[in-house]
Nucleic acid binder design. Structure first.
Length: 505
DNA sequence: GCGATCAGCT
DNA sequence: CACAGCTGATCGC
């Protein structure tokens, strides 16, 4: 679909040039301005800054909660939530079709938090890698923080207080947070959004969850219930491309092109201000045709900046899939009794093994726990290809961590001579280099006897150029990065890119 | 014995 | 490097 068909449509959003919710609270880099902190100088700055999310965008006071701690049902009348019609239907636009995606995970209920210093994992959840080691700098910054905040990390741990929710998980002007489940009850938060079912985003969600309603896509909702046993009363599934009014805020989920069920979350406040939280996403041209993502219509973006560095280059997913299928065919021609293995540890990467399955007309074997998850997607094209007999399938999906020579050699032996060799693929977004970014055929496998392993650059996050194109198309007024923000250097580099991208033409 | 948390590892 | 975890150890119950 071409993007220039949209300007003639009624703009779904209110005025484009309304000021941001509270610009005074943000410095020029999109971060909270700390009066006495020469940003990026002292190591204490980053700690304080990222730990004290509550200092920044304090959430709008929620309406009083009703006595029965029941999540407001989406369809509930008068409960503040109402389904409106699909945006695409409403404007007579054909909905861009998303290709089949899917994934699985074997043990989805564990959490491993990066809690040294009481901060999150440095990279994905965005807290300072440099400041994250307790042994690295217990000196001045800790004292400085104690002076400013009146308590130390050790005291927090001793008191068993949860971490503070970082500012970039809070949506200013609303009582909402996004992917903030590991902080206990977040002050002022009456609705918790979950962008997708990956551990570093749902971390903290357990069957004991009781802090408020959880809004997410229907597929994510099924996984939350099935894998985490969260009480259904708290789970509020939302359809994509459908406007819901939640606590006076119009909320729409959009396809994120990340993993099954992953959504961008679009908020429109009653004053017309708009905010997009990308969760994790891979930006694409298709997104530019969405009515809510037209140029200038989003004021504030919370951006998945996982690969916001020009060194991250990788091909389109289709090219990688094509490479995987071609390589598979070549190996099977040479040795027909080759077992094909694809690694995956959670939901995501389904299209890699689905494509092999289709090309080879082979069933997909994986263990029962992953099958259960994959069936739950409700995708016939995937479900019909799954099988439970490892001997009768030449295409297996295994946990990514098990894709190494030692393991695969053993695995091959358990299959009773049914196969003579293994060809395995590790689709791990960060398998990249200058060379393979452009020429997939330059990828060299690692081979050992009859086991061959290919790392392939199949990414479910945006590449640098995809990120740039997305932002330059969207032209938001402000960008808040959500990944790699813990390190002042990378933060400044990202901000320099943003400034460049948002320059007026 | 179980779940929650944490270090180490990939 | 860093994706999105996994494994094993420890602790409180």
């Amino acid at each position: 679909m071409h993007t220039d068909t949209f300007p003639s449509n009624p703009p779904p959003m209110a005025t484009v040039d309304c000021p941001l919710p509270s610009p005074a609270d943000l410095d020029d880099n999109g971060f909270p301005a700390l009066p006495s902190s020469p940003a990026a100088c002292s190591s204490g700055f980053a700690e304080d800054f990222y730990r004290s999310g509550t200092d920044w965008s304090s959430l709008r006071a929620p309406p009083p909660l009703g006595p029965p701690r029941r999540a407001p049902g989406v369809k509930e009348r008068g409960g503040g939530s109402a389904v409106q019609s699909s945006l695409f239907q409403a404007w007579g636009i054909e909905k861009p079709r998303r290709d089949g995606r899917g994934a699985g995970d074997s043990s989805l209920v564990q959490r491993s938090l990066f809690q040294a210093w009481g901060i999150e994992r440095p990279q994905r959840e965005g807290l300072g890698a440099g400041d994250s080691s307790p042994s690295s700098s217990l000196s001045g910054s800790l004292l400085a923080r104690k002076r400013r905040r009146g308590s130390t990390e050790e005291e927090r741990v001793a008191a068993k207080k949860p971490l503070a929710c970082p500012f970039y998980k809070k949506i200013p002007g609303t009582p909402f947070t996004v992917d903030a489940f590991r902080y206990g009850q977040v002050e002022g938060c009456s609705a918790y959004f979950l962008s997708h079912f990956h551990h570093d985003h749902y971390g903290g969600l357990t069957k004991k969850w009781c802090h408020g309603p959880i809004y997410c896509s229907a597929l994510t909702a099924r996984l939350v219930k099935m894998c985490l046993s969260v009480n259904s009363d708290y789970i509020c599934p939302l359809e994509l491309d459908t406007e819901y009014v939640i606590e006076g805020v119009t909320v729409t989920l959009l396809e994120a092109n990340h993993c099954p069920g992953a959504a961008l979350i679009h908020f429109r406040l009653s004053d017309g201000k708009t905010c997009l939280h990308t969760g994790d996403f891979r930006a694409s041209k298709t997104m530019q045709s969405h009515p809510l993502l037209q140029r200038g219509r989003v004021n504030l973006v919370y951006l998945d900046t996982t690969y916001c560095n020009p060194k991250y280059k990788f091909p389109p997913q289709e090219d990688v899939i094509d490479f995987v299928v071609r390589t598979t065919r070549r190996y099977l021609k040479k040795q027909p009794k080759t077992l094909i293995v694809v690694g995956a540890y959670s939901i995501g990467k389904e299209n890699v093994y689905l494509a092999i399955s289709q090309a080879l007309e082979a069933h997909i074997y994986t263990d029962a726990s992953r099958r259960r998850i994959l069936y739950s997607f409700g995708w016939p094209d995937l479900s019909k290809r799954l099988c439970s007999c490892n001997q009768s399938s030449s295409l297996h999906v295994l946990p990514l961590g098990s894709i190494n020579h030692e393991n695969l050699k053993k695995y091959l032996e358990t299959l009773n001579g049914r196969f003579l060799a293994v060809l395995a693929f590790r689709p791990t977004g960060w398998t990249f280099s200058e060379a393979t970014g452009k020429h997939l055929d330059l990828i060299k496998p690692s081979s050992n006897a009859n086991v061959t392993i290919y790392g392939v650059p199949y990414s479910e996050h945006s590449s640098f150029t995809e990120l740039r194109d997305f932002v330059m198309f969207l032209k938001p007024q402000k960008i808040i990065p959500t990944v790699n923000v813990g390190n002042a250097t990378s933060r400044d580099k990202m901000q320099a890119h943003f400034r460049e991208w948002l320059k007026s033409p």
